[in-house]
Nucleic acid binder design. Structure first.
Lengths: 162, 162
DNA sequence: TTAAATAGGGATATCTTGTATCCTTAATAG
DNA sequence: CTATTAAGGATACAAGATATCCCTATTTAA
């Protein structure tokens, strides 16, 4: 059970978009070059973000993506769910209902005990991701990346931002 | 990102094995019938449990599986990891290292900030699963399943246990 | 001693999902 | 008008999940 690599891509792209000045846009091409990713396929991940309403887009030259909300209002969970879907990692096929010792329909009253525990773990996972935003990530990054490299990347992005 | 159905199977099988009297064994065939599962394929899941040391096996007629440890010492996490592996759900491909603005080798000092957050969520997931044992599950089940059905299944199992 | 039942595991087949590329369309800026 | 962009459909390929079959060694029961 491994998350798609698109999740990683989307997170890093949103991190970059978080540093983009108000009203500027960054294209798929620029994001792909910056991360060394296949442009066409990265585009699919960005489309997922768009459909989820996390980013805003414009067409034409100088077009591209920007965050649709302030970085403090975009959580890891938002991004992960946009790409990976919001379904649970554990699917209960209710195999307890196949137990020949149980009357038909007996197991229709609610989710089984096994599923409840697994879903509880899912919730713990989600809660952690819900608690970290792009603003938090930006703060962390700005602290652990040397100022010259940080501003170098910033300049690189601005040169390509429409 | 969905867990294999074998995880569900393994959990339910261990729940049954938890109720097995000391020294008795239950075969793949019986476990497959009880849950309505393909015997041959379920066997693969049980082999995973065996390789992880969670269950003990015997050969021959009246052979099968029993828990290798007391139910209170077998956690959900043990079983999930036995089937699904103990790797992280988020794989960091270190795409930040492709950033043309960063000197080569700059990103070798440790995991990136994005991965650290994702791994923190993984840990929250694991911690939840580590905190629930087969003994806990047995208690829950015995409380929510009517006594007659509970003992009916128990009798069914004993009739087939070697 | 023999026969039946068992776990273990290898080989294979199929289906789903993830990954990746290509192409067309509509919109937009210069 | 032209170049550039996002969106999305079609397709191809690789990897993983699901499932079945078959063979072997072992052990119990008759």
């Amino acid at each position: 059970m491994i998350l798609k690599s698109q999740v990683e891509w989307a997170l890093h792209c949103c991190a970059i978009l978080s540093g983009l000045p108000e009203g500027r846009y960054l294209s798929t091409k620029a994001l792909a070059e910056l991360h060394g990713l296949p442009k066409e396929y990265l585009s699919k991940a960005l489309q997922s973000l768009s459909q989820a309403g996390l980013v805003h887009t414009t067409l034409g030259p100088s077009g591209g993506y920007r965050l649709a909300r302030p970085p403090a209002e975009v959580s890891f969970l938002d991004i992960v769910e946009a790409v990976e879907g919001s379904g649970r990692t554990f699917v209960c096929n209710n195999i307890r209902a196949n137990n020949p010792c149980r009357p038909k329909g007996f197991c229709d009253t609610g989710p089984c005990a096994v599923a409840r525990v697994m879903w509880q773990a899912d919730e713990a996972w989600r809660n952690t991701l819900r608690g970290v935003t792009m603003a938090d990530l930006g703060q962390t990054l700005s602290q652990e990346i040397p100022p010259d490299i940080w501003s170098g990347t910033f300049a690189w992005v601005l040169k390509r931002a429409g």
